[in-house]
């Protein structure tokens, strides 16, 4: 006799994870290398500032919004921050996730307590719902939104919600919910290289290029 939930969990931990990680790593490298190989022409204009330094600097400074911009799109900005920070806390500071990272790459750090993680996850979910709401109500965001955006939204909210349910045993079998949580994360991993989730990696490249273009001119970025 078999426990179908356990089999699902073991599939999620075994072949499911193997497939997802393979696609994630392969896909990520493919997308990034594809961009890098495309390369750009050497800029022959005599630089006024330092393109490399400003490029590197911009990777970080662009995380801070321009003065006054928050009030132009408060939900997008604040929701965006809360989602990203909340997701990062929930992902990086839960003991079970740290154990996973430790197993993958052999580094670890202290865990946060459940109350903090759950608050972060809950806020991230609320932020995602608010962001979805502006995708529907804000004419610009509505016009820009494609199927890809909704897919990414769904893939981002699912691990948060299923993780919360699995840890707190809100409903369903604990093993099943844990398996579903893992599968939802694996869906995120699989979709990552093929969707706008790629921004989580290529944002650094984009910001670097932007910073280096502006930096060469001695202009702000």
């Amino acid at each position: 006799m078999n426990n179908p939930y356990f089999d699902l969990l073991m599939w999620a931990r075994g072949p499911g994870f193997d497939i997802a990680l393979t696609i994630l790593i392969g896909g990520l490298l493919l997308r990034v290398v594809e961009i890098v190989v495309l390369s750009r022409k050497k800029d022959l204009a005599k630089p006024k500032g330092s393109p490399v330094l400003q490029g590197l600097k911009t990777i970080f400074t662009r995380s801070v919004p321009r003065k006054g911009l928050i009030k132009e799109a408060p939900v997008t900005y604040i929701g965006g921050y809360i989602f990203h920070i909340g997701f990062a806390i929930a992902f990086l500071f839960l003991g079970a996730h740290i154990a996973l990272i430790d197993d993958l790459i052999g580094i670890q750090w202290p865990e946060a307590n459940k109350a903090l993680i759950e608050t972060a996850a809950a806020l991230a979910v609320v932020a995602l719902i608010a962001l979805a709401w502006t995708r529907i109500t804000n004419p610009v965001r509505r016009a820009l939104t494609t199927f890809d955006d909704w897919l990414v939204w769904l893939l981002s909210i699912l691990p948060l919600v299923t993780g919360y349910i699995a840890v707190n045993r809100i409903f369903g079998d604990g093993t099943l919910m844990m398996a579903i949580h893992m599968l939802s994360a694996e869906a995120l991993m699989v979709a990552f290289p093929f969707t706008k989730l790629m921004h989580a990696v290529t944002f650094a490249m984009a910001r670097y290029y932007n910073g280096s273009i502006q930096g060469r001119k001695g202009a702000e970025s």
């Binding site: 997308r31 594809e34 961009i35 890098v36 190989v37 495309l38 390369s39 750009r40 022409k41 911009l69 799109a73 997008t76 900005y77 965006g80 804000n138 610009v140 965001r141 820009l144 939104t145 494609t146 955006d149 990414v152 706008k196 790629m198 921004h199 290529t202 944002f203 490249m205 984009a206 290029y209 932007n210 273009i213």
Partner: peptide
């Protein structure tokens, strides 16, 4: 189209900002 352009289009999350 070059690497910066490719990285820009890859990174856009259609936030509308």
């Amino acid at each position: 189209i070059d690497a910066p352009v490719a990285s820009f289009f890859t990174s856009c999350v259609s936030c509308g900002l």
